[in-house]
């Protein structure tokens, strides 16, 4: 597919994202020049990494279905690997972990084939029942429940949830005249990331009362509401370009993404706090690990997918 076949709205969306990144790059460079005494290297690195994320994302959505599924599958793989590297695992489960990894290509194969029925039950039912059975064949019962619980939670978060992003690309394009096949995915990812940024900015400027002090002491009510409302406004404005949603449906989608993005963020924070690490990894300079960046999407992707799927597909 060449760029000529892309819906105009998608071309504008990518141009808009590139423009925003240009502004961010200029701002971070100017800040460093204005105040050489402060260290903005982390901000600079963060923006630079954003460019790479957007480039990978562009490859993931713009070329063809096979490329999309492979790139998004690899992202699931990296997220799941990061998760398994963080949590304590039992030595006896070596082979079980291998089976868990195998679920990733299989799950993304269902996506590529557009096989909704298996896509939606494979991990929650078949993998869910198979992995404990495989553990029992090994026979180590010490720590069984913790091992199988943590393993399946990781698969649900890193593979099942995130694979909903890929399935958005195989939904019939004719149901979404404005945005084509990639419109709703761009809409979801853009709003989720903007929501993160908006919650941070509102919290920094107005935040006082803490919302979940034990999990994430920097999150405030003002940040939360400011972010959710900003996201909802943007959701309504962008919906006709990228999605089949009506205005009132788009408002619902914006609120859903705003709230779910927050919950995803603090869920991964709780995981990190439990394990005593600051970042989930070091794959994305300036951001931390890949789970640090995907945290909100682990919640928004499946919830937004089923919202749109119920309403329009």
């Amino acid at each position: 597919m060449t760029s000529i076949n892309l819906p105009l709205s998608v071309q504008i969306a990518f141009a808009g994202i590139a423009l925003m990144l240009c502004i961010a790059s200029c701002l971070s460079i100017t800040l460093q020049h204005r105040r050489p005494e402060c260290d903005y290297s982390e901000l600079r690195q963060r923006v630079r990494t954003w460019w790479i994320i957007v480039a990978v994302f562009a490859v993931a959505v713009l070329i063809n279905r096979a490329t999309s599924v492979i790139v998004l599958g690899l992202i699931s793989f990296l997220a799941f690997k990061e998760y398994l590297s963080l949590i304590p695992t039992r030595r006896a489960d070596h082979r079980v972990l291998f089976w868990a990894y195998l679920a990733i290509p299989v799950q993304y194969y269902w996506v590529w084939a557009g096989w909704y029925g298996l896509f939606i039950i494979f991990i929650p039912i078949y993998v869910f029942l198979w992995l404990p059975m495989r553990m029992i064949l090994i026979g180590e019962t010490q720590g069984f429940l913790r091992a199988i619980g943590t393993l399946h939670w990781g698969l649900m978060i890193c593979v099942f949830s995130l694979s909903h992003m890929a399935f958005m690309l195989v939904l019939p394009a004719e149901n979404n005249p404005g945005g084509g096949s990639m419109g709703i995915l761009i809409y979801l990812i853009f709003l989720t990331e903007i929501n993160d940024v908006a919650q941070y900015l509102w919290g920094k400027s107005l935040g006082k009362r803490k919302i979940v002090p034990k999990v994430s002491p920097n999150k405030t009510f003002a940040g939360f509401w400011g972010g959710v409302l900003s996201t909802a406004v943007l959701a309504v404005l962008l919906a006709p370009w990228l999605t089949p949603l009506t205005r009132i449906e788009a408002l619902g989608a914006g609120l859903l993404i705003g709230v779910a993005g927050f919950v995803g963020d603090v869920t991964i924070s709780a995981l990190k706090r439990d394990l005593g690490v600051k970042n989930s990894g070091s794959l994305l300079p300036g951001h931390g690990g890949i789970l640090d960046r995907l945290d909100s999407l682990t919640y928004t992707a499946p919830l937004f997918f089923h919202y749109v799927y119920f309403l329009h597909y």
Binding site: K81, L84, S85, R91, F98
Partner: peptide
């Protein structure tokens, strides 16, 4: 640190970890 988890002695199945 961690390679013993990827491919411990006596195993031939490689399991990825950072």
């Amino acid at each position: 640190s961690g390679l013993g988890k990827c491919l411990p002695k006596g195993e031939f199945v490689l399991v990825p970890f950072f």
